[in-house]
Design a binder for these strands. Structure first.
Lengths: 127, 127
DNA sequence: CAGTATCCCGCTGGATACTG
DNA sequence: CAGTATCCAGCGGGATACTG
């Protein structure tokens, strides 16, 4: 059984789970948000450094994703008055509450990749 | 700290985490896949019943999502030779490995909704 | 460095209607 | 019931170029 219920699962409990997951996905949607948060786990980073961490994200998209994360209070933007200007992006304490989600995704993704690789190995080679 | 590392986190470990999460998101992407899986947690369901569980999903989209989940071996489609035909969709054991992800999303989504509701309460009412 | 400005393509996914 | 067919809007998101 996937989700452990204290009591026998009712249709209402199931619906509540579905809606809770939809709420979560609503703010974590898209290709980049969760990887981006992970990129900031080890401490604040600059715009360009995040771009490097995420490999092939374009500045437009990164900018938009960072704004989204700011609006949802996952990320704080800090500007330093240097020349040229320095900007740091830092996770908020609220972002830390995403820990279990990210860890579960990381663990599963690792296993999943392994599974794919192994199934490829046992298949006839397609040329 | 969001993700617990056995040793001091290196840039490589961070990159590995990012890629693992990206792998996971690749097969779980979109608005419906995870809610759909939850809808099947309590046992196999028929097409129409899934549609009802997910409220406003259209048959076209549901059909496509189910095919995607079948391809990734999360769901098995079983046809029964009744009149009219009966089709059941059932989770595979592999879908069960998603348990921690879904539970983490459910728990976080529940808290998050609560947080939003509370912050709304303390704000001036916008008319 | 830290972004913005344009352009644009493809996919997601909704509306509606129809079929075996 | 269990879908498919068509049509279509929106936007996620990439490419490229440019700015303070």
């Amino acid at each position: 059984m996937m989700i452990q219920y204290k009591t026998k699962p009712t249709a209402e409990a199931c619906l509540a789970s579905i809606n809770a997951v939809r709420d979560a996905l609503y703010v974590l949607n898209g290709k980049w948000k969760m990887p981006l948060i992970i990129a900031l786990v080890n401490g604040p980073k600059r715009f360009k450094d995040i771009q490097r961490s995420l490999q092939d994200i374009t500045p437009k998209v990164l900018s938009k994703e960072l704004r989204d994360l700011e609006m949802n209070e996952f990320v704080e933007r800090k500007v330093f008055d240097t020349v040229p200007v320095t900007v740091l992006y830092e996770l908020t304490p609220y972002a830390d509450t995403l820990g279990p989600i990210l860890e579960a995704l990381r663990a599963w993704g690792t296993e999943h990749r392994q599974r794919i690789v192994e199934s490829r190995r046992s298949e006839p080679v397609a040329v």
